Amino acid sequence: MTAVLPPGSPLEAMLEGRVPVLRVPMRGLWDLAARRRLRRLALSGGVPLVQTWMGRATRLLRLPSRRVVHVARLGGYYDVKGYRHAHAWIGNTRGICDHLLAAGLPASRVFHIGNFYRPPPPLTGEQRAVLRRGLGVPEGAWMIFALGRLHPNKGFDTLLEALSRLPETIAGRPWHMVIAGEGPLGTELREAGRRLGLEQRLTWPGWNPEPAPWYQVADLFVCPSRHEPLGNVILEAWGNRVPVLACASQGPSELIRPGRDGMLVPVDRPPALARAIADLLGEEALREGLVEAGFRRLEEEFSVEVILERYRDLYERLTGA
């Protein structure tokens, strides 16, 4: 196995010492030098299969036949035009697979394989207390957590409207909201928080490439997205044993079994989201049940071992190995 990455890719550090890496600049869809080099690597490397993970790499790689199988993996509802030349396709949700089939791709060559998540070791009690203080969470307060790019698709404006409807305390405890991420709406959302009178109840810690500790110190994770193809954040929340509340966009609706391993509310409905937050924080038994069921779902369907085995099975099927 060899990974082909553009120079400076953050994935290179993750793969160091595990997988050989070749660096190929991919400057754009009309980068003919990259197109020739990728084709040469695929055809002369003695490999039976090449999988592309990003749109640019998929569009640049053009193979003349199925002597080397080209598998394109999609993590969103992209225009299929740039993917049709592949020989097989993977969607990381059933909804994306349905999108590919609706575009006319053959059902015999479209496959569903989800994402995986490997939970880290749990924090100690002292580590949890220190981290919560560092995030500005008052002693004894509920910590509500959300994570994502500060972009219209992520619905953080809806979340702020919902928070403005919450009472001062829930089940006798104050609450504090931590929204992690960066993006084009950062300034606008912070101003909205001030306008809604939430400034003292909000922490904006920015982006963290390793957010697991933040999940672990939270009492509730909220995914307010109005457009979310999968929702890796839900897998991360399950793996870090925090109850999940999400708006019913595409990915969360597919992942969550309401009342069993998470809760769903309609998209862009602040009153419903506020009620669900208050209800969950007020019902300890419900939260505990969601946590245990979510962790089991992760282990049974989205663990590293389960997902890698599905990829191995698919590769063998496509190559006749």
Rank of each mutant, 00 (worst) to 15 (best):
P252E: 11
F302I: 01
E254P: 00
V304F: 15
R296T: 12
A274N: 09
L281P: 09
A285R: 12
L286Q: 14
E288W: 07
I256C: 10
R257W: 11
L281C: 06
L298N: 14
A293D: 11
L264T: 05
V304H: 13
D261G: 11
A285H: 05
P266N: 07
E299R: 15
L255V: 02
I277N: 05
A278F: 02
L280G: 06
P252Q: 09
L273Y: 09
P270T: 11
R287T: 04
L286H: 04
G282K: 08
P252K: 10
D261A: 09
S303F: 12
E283G: 00
A276E: 13
G262K: 09
L281E: 08
G294M: 05
S303I: 09
A278T: 14
A293Y: 06
L273I: 10
V291C: 01
D261C: 07
D261H: 13
D261E: 14
E284F: 00
L298E: 15
G282F: 08
F302L: 04
L273E: 07
L280Y: 04
L264Y: 09
L290I: 02
F295P: 00
E301C: 04
I277D: 04
P270R: 02
A272Y: 00
D268N: 15
G259T: 05
E254K: 07
G282Q: 04
R296E: 15
R275V: 01
F295A: 15
L264F: 07
E300D: 14
E292N: 00
S303L: 11
E299W: 03
L273W: 09
L273K: 07
A276N: 05
P271L: 01
F302Q: 03
E300F: 03
A274I: 10
E305W: 04
R297P: 03
E292I: 00
